[in-house]
Design a protein around this nucleic acid. Structure first.
Lengths: 218, 218
DNA sequence: CATTTAATCCAACGTCCGATGGATAATCGT
DNA sequence: ACGATTATCCATCGGACGTTGGATTAAATG
């Protein structure tokens, strides 16, 4: 990740090796501000100042404010999707090795997810903000969330077919786990004692997942 | 709940029996708008129009915009706290009647919670918005959430002492259930098929709670 | 070297917002 | 019946916002 501000770049056409730099710096600064305070509470002059450039430079690189906002979301969510898709595919390929291996694979998958959110808490903030904007929400859900939900839901369904997995309603199980993880990040941001909270949340999630491996309901 | 708009009240001192009416109408209209779009995206003129009054009238009754915002939160959260406190106390008093009654009492309690959120989805929106405002979040958490969390956590702890309740980390269990419920409301608002989703979410939560009543981990 | 291209900043425009002062009208207290 | 009180609206002010046009600088291009 590039530094938050630039060391005052002089005007003029950029050299071939330094194109795209300013855009990244602006996006990084804008992402942090939007995650913290939202679209309307953040001014373009503020973004420009945080990035160390003029407001017109921001407009030059990212167009309107709405386009800048969308670009911030796309960048963060794409990174999340990339990490989680890879982890989900690994878990999927571990299914053939028996119920115990499948359970461990599930543990690893959610650990990757929780690690990612803890490392980049702005992801949670951006998702919460999108969930509060119904029209955008639907679009981004389709692009970034649904593929993952589908993958993990298939994972649970396949595990139920292979081992003795008790899985009442896969998509609700997955969604609830995701929201619990976001709640965990919010609690951390609000000042919950960090190390202990992190450890206990993982314990909770693992036990919850293990509970899915109990005997089928009569 | 009063109507969203007023039938154009004429100026002049109000009669004794109609004091506080305008304030309630303004608060109701403002709550709906703030829940939908947030503090900065809602203008006071817009609130005034939705309530059928002038912008100066809004200021007269509620002071600054920030005070109006806070008043909306306080009203909704107080209602939620009242309903849930009563339900939690009922569940608590059912603990002495044995493990089965305790489990049924827990089911009833979360049903009350989910019913409340489904009936008044603006509650979820307001909580999400508060969680995105760290400083306000801490204060309202202390006033409205923590008493309830403490009550339910004690409930789980007492149930573990009485029956065979497996409860690894009570406060994380409670928080995760709360967030799962908010995620459920967001999914409903985003257009998930209503009746089926409502039924399945309750099934999921009940099975999750029953899982807490399994044999203690070795 | 001359021209084109790209990035940056400065200054300004029009708009909308929250807040306020003051006028008006209807009821209350006496 | 008459002042005091309260609620309402109108008009307006200062400021912040997103956006844009144009000047400046520097590298690429030929």
């Amino acid at each position: 990740m590039a530094a938050m501000t630039m060391p005052r770049r002089r005007p003029g056409r950029p050299r071939r090796d330094e194109t795209r730099q300013t855009r990244e710096v602006v996006l990084t600064a804008a992402t942090a501000l939007f995650a913290e305070r939202g679209f309307d509470a953040v001014g373009l002059r503020e973004v420009a100042a945080a990035a160390g450039v003029d407001v017109a430079t921001v407009a030059h690189h990212t167009g309107t404010k709405a386009a800048l906002y969308d670009a911030c979301f796309a960048r963060v969510f794409a990174a999340e999707r990339e990490v989680l898709t890879k982890a989900a595919e690994q878990a999927h390929s571990a299914l053939d090795a028996g119920p115990d291996a499948a359970r461990r694979a599930l543990h690893d998958l959610v650990d990757v997810f929780v690690d990612f959110l803890e490392d980049r808490p702005e992801t949670t903030a951006l998702w919460l903000r999108r969930w509060l904007e119904p029209q955008r929400h639907a679009e981004l859900d389709q692009r970034y969330a649904e593929p993952l939900y589908r993958l993990v839901t298939e994972l649970l369904t396949a595990a139920a077919a292979a081992g003795a997995l008790v899985e009442p309603i896969p998509h609700i199980t997955v969604r609830s786990l995701v929201w619990a993880a976001h709640g965990h990040v919010v609690a951390l941001a609000a000042g919950a004692p960090g190390a202990r909270e992190r450890r206990e949340f993982r314990t909770f999630v693992h036990r919850f997942l293990d509970g899915l491996y109990g005997p089928p309901a009569p």
